[in-house]
């Protein structure tokens, strides 16, 4: 670590300055100085006084392309969300829903008031993972595991689309939209509207999950996005199933609808965490055998 770029060799410093000029060119004029300061701090943190041009290049490459910088509107939105305490929602969802080191099964909500289920504590109690299996949850989870997890909402979306495409014609014109506590429909909606809601309710989360799986965001954020998407998709998919049952009272419907979301989310989080654990083990044991 260095304090200023002056500590670098003249060649490395010249390369860094040229990169800073290029990188900040795309930023809006009002933000350019701030972005430059941030990038200098980024370089200083990761470089030593003896760093060669290649080292600076490596750190600069790892910083990735510098975007045009957030627009004023987006900065305002971010500040507003931070003020309301809802910034970094995906990361916080993952940290709340999956914290195996914490023994508490019910934990204060990630966003808003109330309680969330800590699936990590449940998994530890069921013996499917150790409390310290991952040093940083989902940090070691490989990309292919995220892709597999994102296939869950994708499969639910495909099932919902297929259901309405294949069976749509045979379904009655009006489908249940709400059920009472006994599991009997008490409100109805036109078939088209029900189909649109169920398809959107699974396809949008599936798209979010697919995007998250491929994004270069930190593992906890990807896990949070995929878990949230799985929750929404499974609620929509269960609704599709419930609608297809038509009239009649089914006492198991309420509990089944309430349980399907958490069960799907739990399965996805356990899968992602176990994949991260397996990756950590593979890395450490390979080192031993080398």
């Amino acid at each position: 670590m260095i304090r200023t770029l002056d500590e670098l060799t003249p060649e490395a410093r010249a390369w860094a300055e040229a990169w800073l000029d290029r990188a900040t060119a795309a930023a809006p004029p009002t933000l350019r100085a701030d972005v430059r300061d941030d990038l200098i701090a980024h370089l200083c943190e990761r470089l030593d006084a003896g760093a060669a041009v290649a080292d600076v290049e490596r750190v600069a490459d790892a910083a990735g392309p510098i975007a045009g910088g957030p627009s004023t509107a987006r900065r305002w939105l971010r500040q507003l969300l931070a003020g309301l305490g809802v910034h970094d929602v995906p990361g916080r969802i993952a940290a709340t829903w999956w914290n195996p080191a914490d023994e508490r099964v019910l934990v204060p909500r990630a966003v808003g008031l109330g309680w969330d289920l800590n699936f990590g504590a449940v998994a530890v109690r069921l013996g499917v993972i150790e409390p310290d299996a991952e040093t940083e949850p989902f940090a070691s989870t490989p990309a292919r595991a995220f892709a597999t997890a994102a296939a869950v909402p994708a499969a639910l979306a495909a099932a919902a689309v297929l259901h309405y495409a294949v069976r749509g014609r045979n379904l009655p014109d009006r489908l249940p939209a709400h059920w009472n506590a006994a599991g009997a429909p008490d409100r109805w909606t036109p078939k088209r509207r029900a189909a649109a809601a169920d398809v959107a309710g699974t396809v949008v989360p599936a798209a979010v999950a697919a995007w998250a799986a491929r994004s270069g965001r930190p593992g906890s954020e990807r896990a949070g996005l995929i878990a949230g998407a799985t929750l929404f998709a499974s609620i929509s998919a269960t609704t599709t199933v419930a609608r297809s049952l038509g009239d009649g009272r089914r006492a198991w419907l309420g509990p089944a609808m309430a349980a399907s979301g958490p069960l799907a989310v739990g399965a996805v989080l356990v899968w992602l965490a176990r994949a991260g654990r397996a990756e950590e083990i593979r890395r450490d044991l390979e080192k031993v055998h080398d």
Binding site: P100, E103, R104, P131, T135
Partner: peptide
């Protein structure tokens, strides 16, 4: 002290670089 206190502490010590973790057979 309960496991619920020890494990979060171990994670914190690992993040702070005071301990390192290695999986072993």
């Amino acid at each position: 002290i309960t496991a619920g206190t020890v494990y979060p502490l171990l994670a914190r010590l690992a993040r702070a670089g005071l301990v390192k973790t290695t999986w072993q057979e």
